[in-house]
């Protein structure tokens, strides 16, 4: 969804249009994120974290998969250096997101870059990149990422609080954590527009399956690198 950026609109109106464009693009993704947040809240308590820490983590770390891994490892009395390393490697993919959105945020003052970096999660990135790439290059397009990011941020910590409060009332057999996988299935399909992108996705998936035994969740990075390289190599098969 790309908001209309009518040149006759005032800057304020354009900012608002971008912000709400981001909010409304992000909202459907919350259907996958909220159940995942609930599951995280429950899992945090089960792993022996106090309620305050489980909720605080959703604001401090703000990265779903890495938080799941954090609490699991914490529950197993893993050394803190191993936890920090595993969380970092799990989130290393965000470096690539940072690189992908950076050209669209070049002109911004530092405080904007800090806020938008904090909000740059999988789902906010997925919602905003198409707008950056295909939408009009207006001076206010970063408000789109702000809208998407704030929406996801709110949904994430609110659902974590709900998970902590509801706790055991959520049966594990519901498999609510599957919702985030379904989100990524949609995001994968929607990110594929060319043959080479399909090649990248298939290669990354195969690599993820083959390298899953690597320590520190390095398989995510291995899959990303192999997928990207295979995509580049397969470019010659794209229709022009």
């Amino acid at each position: 969804m790309t908001p209309k950026t009518d040149p006759s609109l005032s800057p304020d109106a354009t900012r608002r249009a971008e912000f709400w464009g981001g909010v409304f693009t992000e909202l459907p993704l919350l259907l996958g994120v909220v159940p995942f947040g609930l599951v995280f809240g429950v899992l945090g308590l089960q792993s022996g974290l106090p309620a305050w820490a489980t909720i605080a983590m959703s604001v401090i770390v703000f990265g779903g998969a890495s938080q799941m891994i954090f609490v699991q490892l914490w529950g197993l009395a893993t050394p803190v250096t191993v936890i920090a390393a595993t969380v970092s490697v799990t989130n290393l993919r965000h470096v690539l997101y940072s690189a992908a959105v950076a050209p669209y945020l070049l002109h911004l003052p530092r405080h904007w870059k800090i806020i938008l970096s904090y909000l740059l999660t999988d789902e906010a990135f997925a919602a905003s990149l198409p707008r950056f790439r295909e939408g009009a290059a207006t001076p206010f397009r970063h408000w789109f990422l702000l809208g998407a990011g704030v929406t996801l941020w709110t949904g994430w910590w609110v659902s974590t609080v709900l998970g902590v409060v509801l706790g055991r009332a959520i049966p594990e057999r519901w498999g609510l954590d599957f919702s985030v996988t379904l989100t990524f299935i949609t995001l994968t399909v929607m990110s594929i527009q060319r043959r080479s992108e399909a090649v990248a996705a298939i290669a990354a998936m195969a690599t993820a399956l083959l390298t899953r035994q690597l320590p520190f969740k390095l398989w995510i990075l291995a899959a990303a690198v192999v997928g990207i390289l295979c995509g580049v190599v397969a470019r010659r098969f794209d229709k022009r």
């Binding site: 690189a99 050209p103 990135f125 996988t181 994968t188 990354a204 990207i228 995509g231």
Partner: peptide, 20 residues
């Protein structure tokens, strides 16, 4: 470099599906 980054979303999102 930005040609490479085009493949970030399909590669990473697909990889994150696999283990589950």
């Amino acid at each position: 470099f930005y040609d490479l980054l085009r493949y970030v979303p399909p590669a990473i999102f697909a990889a994150l599906i696999a283990p589950d």
